[in-house]
Nucleic acid binder design. Structure first.
Length: 584
RNA sequence: GGUCCGGUAGCUCAGCUGGAUAGAGCACCAGCCUUCUAAGCUGGGGGUCAUUGGUUCGAAUCCAAUCCGGAUCACCA
């Protein structure tokens, strides 16, 4: 998957360099140069840097000599203001007018965000969020939702045709335990609202009760009752089946509440219950054909020659497993949507499971088996270990959201309580809560685990979502206050202060970062970029007052540049699923 | 034990397709609001990039070994 040379600034520098390097016949292509261009560690060196080590061998010359030579041979032009050799690097300073026309103007008119960024964009399904009904959604699920949603949006931004899907688990032992407890042991009245969360607590109680009664005379009776629940669910008839239909809806309502809050949408909800029976039938078919074998009363496939052990597909009681369903589901995804690639956003504990599933699909002759990818991430845990609904040590998503709202209203937003309507207060708190929670989930590299600490999460300063939202709101406010009084004409060439040029250079990097975040499946790259953009802007903002600027041209241009930053923040946060408040 | 993933400042992390003096945030210290939003800005202290060896002109980054932590390896999902 190639990234296209969409960055007009870098492309122009690369062209200038290429013209100088070409005559030495080193075989260095325009593309090589474009790719090698980077940023100097200290902005005082210049805006872009070209390292000359690469040419050293071909030219049989020391890198710093080459740099000196190139610095003389590369001419300044409408884009390049100066070329300076610094050790083995050639550093370029770009004219503000060129930066303005190719970056700011394009941000303002929107063309910056419609450039073609990636060469190959196969039609892809991204499956994320695999919650269970009859359990409560916790902050661990939130990481998955934030990550999955950001990936969907980033891919769409980069030109991919994306189908989003979710795969909730609405059948299985957890459902039976929950219904069992509800029927035989629950003494609470059924609440009128938040039934889904309440149901989740019953699952935990049920599980714990069953555990505690193992080895007691009660155990046999429990097993008998549980098995009756499962039988009724399987035959889709009886009291428990009716309970299942009703309680399932409570859980779906909870999921919908969370998804609504997060602003995520799924093109297709695949239910475990819909693939359960067909998946067992599929396995039996392949068993008869001889691909799958019997072992210890179960049916599965021996993958030990691939170091993947035995992949069990039908238990000795005749029921299927998670892998069974995923095999049937994989097939359906390609069939239902004619996709070319299938991505599963699931935490790393399932790595072995997916390795087995994909290998099994391959051996079954499934032509798209090599187009299935498990995108693994590390999960969220608590200071005292992994979260588990079974043990009941979870932080429900709604608790985090509620505490965040309260903390914001009693904190920074308190100063607006006499000025704002209740509605604006609630909306703003909600936007900032989304900024804090989603940014917090996404900014960490997916490969690293998150240890959740509520106290830390309620902080909104420093490298956090609210900082970026604050920068947006601040620009918005400034534009509102100054807008009418600024009468000068915009002229990018007036942006001679280094801080202003840094803002423009940083802005021009937007698409490079977005495409990296997308193709590497690391949305945290975009977080870092947006944070740095805000950092550079705030330095610029504090450096010299725009309001008090006497030169009308500079004043108008700086205000316009500020607008560009606001647009980029809004666009970038949008790709992460984070909204921006007009004021905060 | 096999496989996979992590180990960078007191804490949380970025940098990892090799390149300039290893960067942020939090915490700590010193400054900046008669307001373009202080959820901000400026400056300061703080590092054996787990360890050892290798490849290279050059290694936090690549390779190997070792140590620490975690996940996973047949009837849960």
């Amino acid at each position: 998957m190639n990234i296209l040379n969409h960055d007009k600034i870098k492309l122009r520098i690369a062209e200038s360099l290429h013209a100088a390097i070409e005559k030495y016949e080193t075989g260095t292509t325009l593309n090589d140069i474009y790719t090698a261009l980077g940023f100097p560690p200290d902005a005082n060196f210049g805006h872009y840097a070209y390292p000359c080590f690469i040419l050293s061998k071909a030219l049989r010359n020391a890198p710093n000599k080459i740099a000196e030579k190139l610095a003389i041979e590369v001419d300044t032009n409408e884009a390049i203001e100066s070329v300076i050799a610094a050790g083995p690097y050639v550093n370029f300073k770009i004219r503000p007018a060129f930066l303005g026309v190719n970056t700011c103007d394009e941000v303002l008119n929107g063309t910056m965000f419609t450039r073609t960024l990636a060469e190959q964009t196969p039609k892809t399904m991204i499956e994320y969020s695999q919650p269970n009904t009859h359990k409560e959604l916790h902050v661990g699920h939130m990481r998955n939702i934030c990550l999955g949603d950001a990936l969907v949006k980033l891919h769409q931004y980069c030109g991919f045709d994306i189908i989003s899907s979710t795969f909730p688990g609405d059948v299985g032992a957890h459902v039976a335990k929950c219904l069992w407890y509800l029927k035989y042991h629950n003494t609470d009245p059924i609440p009128t609202e938040n039934k889904g969360a309440w149901l989740g607590t019953l699952y935990t109680k049920g599980h714990l009760k069953l555990e505690s009664e193992i080895g007691t005379p009660q155990e046999a009776e429990n097993k008998k009752q549980l098995s009756e629940v499962l039988t009724q669910l399987e035959h889709e008839a009886g009291e428990f089946y009716d309970m299942w239909k009703e309680t399932r809806q409570w859980s779906i309502e909870l999921m919908n509440n969370v998804y609504r809050w997060a602003g995520v949408h799924f093109d297709r909800w695949y239910w475990e219950s819909e693939v359960d029976v067909p998946s067992v039938a599929l396995v039996k078919k392949y068993y008869e054909q001889g691909l799958f074998v019997e072992s210890k009363g179960t049916i599965g496939i021996d993958l030990s020659e691939y170091d993947l052990g035995f992949c069990m597909l039908i238990k000795s009681d005749g029921h299927g497993l998670y892998a069974t369903k995923d095999i049937e589901l994989a097939r359906r995804k390609f069939e239902d949507f004619k996709i070319e690639k299938s991505v599963y956003v699931v935490d790393k504990r399932q790595a072995h499971h997916f390795a087995q599933v994909f290998k099994t699909l391959e051996l079954m002759g499934f032509e798209h088996a090599d187009k299935c990818y498990h995108l693994q991430y590390d999960y969220v845990e608590l200071p005292d270990g992994a979260m588990s609904s079974r043990k009941g040590n979870i932080v429900p998503i709604m608790d985090l959201i509620d505490q965040m709202h309260a903390s914001l209203k009693n904190g920074h937003l308190d100063k607006y309580k006499d000025e704002w309507t209740t509605e604006e207060m609630d909306n703003t708190a909600d936007f900032i809560a989304k900024g804090a929670i989603k940014y917090g989930m996404i900014k960490i590299d997916p490969a690293k685990k998150i240890v959740f600490d509520m106290k830390e999460w309620l902080k909104t300063d420093g490298d956090a979502g609210p900082y970026l939202q604050y920068t947006y709101a601040r620009i918005n406010s400034m534009v509102k206050k100054l807008g009418g009084d600024v009468t000068g004409n915009v002229d990018w060439s007036s942006m001679e202060e280094e801080v202003a040029k840094h803002v423009m250079v940083k802005l021009s990097d937007f698409n490079n970062q977005a495409v990296q975040a997308c193709l590497n499946s690391k949305p945290n790259i975009l977080c870092t970029y947006l944070y740095e953009l805000c950092k550079v802007f705030n330095t610029f903002y504090n450096h010299r007052s725009i309001r008090d600027e006497e030169n009308k041209t500079i004043q108008a241009t700086k205000l316009e540049l500020s607008k560009c930053v606001a647009i980029a923040i809004k666009k970038g946060l949008g790709l992460l699923g984070i909204p921006v408040p007009d004021r905060m």
